[in-house]
Amino acid sequence: MTTVSLKPAFAAPPVPADQLGSIGVRMAFAAGEEIYAQDEEADMIYRVVSGAIRTSRLLSDGRRQIGDFYYNGDFVGLEAGPVHRYSAEALGPCEILVIRKSALKLYGEEGIRIERMIWAETARELQRTQEHLMLLGRKSACEKVASFLLGMAGRFRGEVAELPMGRQDMADYLGLTIETVSRMVTQLQVDGLVRFVDNRRFEVRNQPGLAQLVEA
């Protein structure tokens, strides 16, 4: 069955690079490299130019909570307080535009325009957080995995969607064990809703059925 184009569940609309003008510095990061640290001063904000990154926080008992995943066009590091509550790491090779918030006032009207854009992205970030909380608290394990795959499939226009993160990242984001994620992925394949080409690539085989499961 041909894969259909889906609307992502947790994606913020990309911000065209030309809207950012000459503000900021582009930096390259390798897979697994830290972009900023948990509890680091939050004077910088970051926009993904290419690649994907994750945010995560280590809890006092050693467990890890994934905050979210960010892709081309997304802003990262938007904080209400003075420090980053999460750290950010590159999932693979990526390029990041780094902007110092305190320097925006030096850019006049362009800086004001960028500040407004950042506030709009902050509102979207709040919406993403609310959706994540609902996902963690109100859905079954199968519904969580289905929601995640539906959102990821919506980012790709081709027949095969690619997961830049591994199963452990998925598990930590969804509040599940890696074994549970693997079982749910298998169940969704047995039910004919998705088909995994390999560990990181999949296609949706039954979009209405997957959507119905997500909305249950």
Rank of each mutant, 00 (worst) to 15 (best):
S5A: 06
K7Y: 09
K7N: 08
P8H: 08
A12K: 13
P13Y: 12
P16D: 06
A17I: 08
Q19T: 00
I23S: 09
I23P: 11
R26N: 15
F29Q: 01
A30C: 01
A30G: 03
E33P: 12
I35C: 05
I35D: 05
Y36C: 10
Y36R: 01
A37R: 15
E40W: 02
E40P: 06
E40S: 09
E41D: 03
E41S: 01
A42I: 11
A42K: 08
A42F: 12
D43A: 00
D43P: 00
D43Y: 01
M44Q: 14
Y46E: 05
Y46G: 01
V49A: 02
G51S: 03
G51F: 03
R54T: 06
R54F: 13
S56C: 04
R57E: 14
R57C: 08
R57K: 14
D61M: 02
G62N: 15
G62E: 13
R64Q: 14
Q65C: 06
Q65G: 04
I66L: 10
I66D: 15
D68P: 00
Y71N: 10
D74V: 01
V76Y: 08
E79Y: 09
E79T: 11
A80E: 14
A80F: 13
P82D: 09
V83Q: 08
R85G: 14
A88R: 00
A88C: 07
A88G: 05
A90R: 07
L91G: 11
G92A: 14
C94S: 15
L97N: 11
V98L: 09
R100V: 01
S102I: 01
